[in-house]
């Protein structure tokens, strides 16, 4: 298992390196001079040249790439062209919105989906199963930003329970911050919960057909314990896989939702940076997200080993 893990980490680092080359070269080929962008169209040629020199834009592409990657490795993400502050600082501020948002929605989606999926599997073929899975089928089809609009209309415009958008900052108190994040989190969580419930149900059904479940029932184990202890644990592998995918999706998927609710998170940062050609910010955020996806995948693998001891001796 340890060897396997080390191998996974090595592959992950390699992927990250290739990804950095891809990101850098894609953003290299697009038109637009960052120095000109910073100074504006009426910049003096001398000033422009000086700034280009200072930003290192006159160096060959390869050297600039090396410079950027070695910076990333030690946590120096460069300086934003438009904000004139370190990219890492910008990311740090925005993560304080996006990460709680992603975690809350992941939590909501899990606490809704697991019981619903297990419930449906336990009542397979009965009306309760048909109804919940029909609802899940509809949930999968709902675009999260449309659901967000409906939530805003219902809870912010009509019932006036929560703000329709914006974020007061965590300085305004945890409660005020959570209040601003709850609608976006629900909007993100619902379609994810629908997918997760379907996966949970089919994973449970697969397990419930196994011999050891029948054995457990035959020796008089109560149905509830068999369901929650024996079956769920064995059904967790596909569920974990989807959860891992969903966390990565939630971090990136917040782009649209953060735009709907005007939340100052990572998604909005990268969206604005793209439109303002603030490439160094875009590069930094994309690399961070790719790294997150890779790390989460490795964590999911470790999760497999925790859930299923048989996998611990693998390779």
């Amino acid at each position: 298992m340890l060897v396997y893990l080390l191998k996974r980490i090595a592959i992950g680092l390699a992927t990250l390196l290739v990804a950095s080359a891809v990101v850098f070269s894609v953003l290299e080929i697009i038109p637009g001079d960052p120095a000109l962008l910073m100074l504006g169209m009426n910049a003096e040629p001398d000033t422009l040249a000086a700034l280009r020199e200072q930003m290192g834009l006159n160096q060959p592409v390869f050297l600039r790439y090396l410079d950027w990657v070695s910076g990333l490795a030690v946590g120096d993400f460069g300086t934003s062209y438009t904000y004139s502050s370190p990219v890492l600082e910008l990311i740090g501020e925005r993560v304080m919105v996006s990460l709680p948002l992603a975690l809350i929605s992941l939590f909501l989606s899990t606490v809704i989906a697991l019981p619903v999926g297990i419930f449906a599997a336990a009542r397979r073929g009965k009306p309760a199963d048909t109804i919940t899975m029909g609802a899940a089928q509809v949930g999968v089809a709902i675009p999260n930003f449309w659901f967000a609009l409906l939530l805003i209309y219902l809870f912010a415009v009509w019932l006036r329970l929560v703000p329709a958008g914006g974020f007061p900052g965590w300085d305004a108190g945890i409660w005020a911050g959570l209040k601003a994040l709850i609608l976006p989190a629900i909007a993100l969580a619902l379609p994810q919960a629908a997918i997760l419930a379907r996966v949970t149900r089919s994973a449970m059904l697969e397990v419930l057909g196994e011999d050891y479940i029948r054995t457990a029932r035959a020796k008089g184990m109560p149905r509830r314990i068999v369901l929650w202890h024996h079956a769920l644990r064995n059904a967790l592998i596909p569920v974990l896989t989807i959860l891992g995918l969903q966390f990565a999706f939630l971090l990136a998927g917040t782009i649209i939702i953060e735009n709907v609710f005007y939340l100052p998170g990572l998604g909005r940062l990268v969206f604005q940076a793209i439109t303002q050609r603030d490439l160094i910010v875009v590069e930094g955020v994309v690399m961070l997200l790719v790294a997150t996806v890779i790390i989460v995948n490795i964590l999911v693998d470790i999760g497999y080993a925790i859930v299923d001891p048989r996998l611990r001796t693998r390779r």
Binding site: A19, G253, L289
Partner: peptide, 12 residues
Amino acid sequence: LVFAFPALLSAI
């Protein structure tokens, strides 16, 4: 590698 890029972000 392509899977490691969040699809929506890259599309944007």
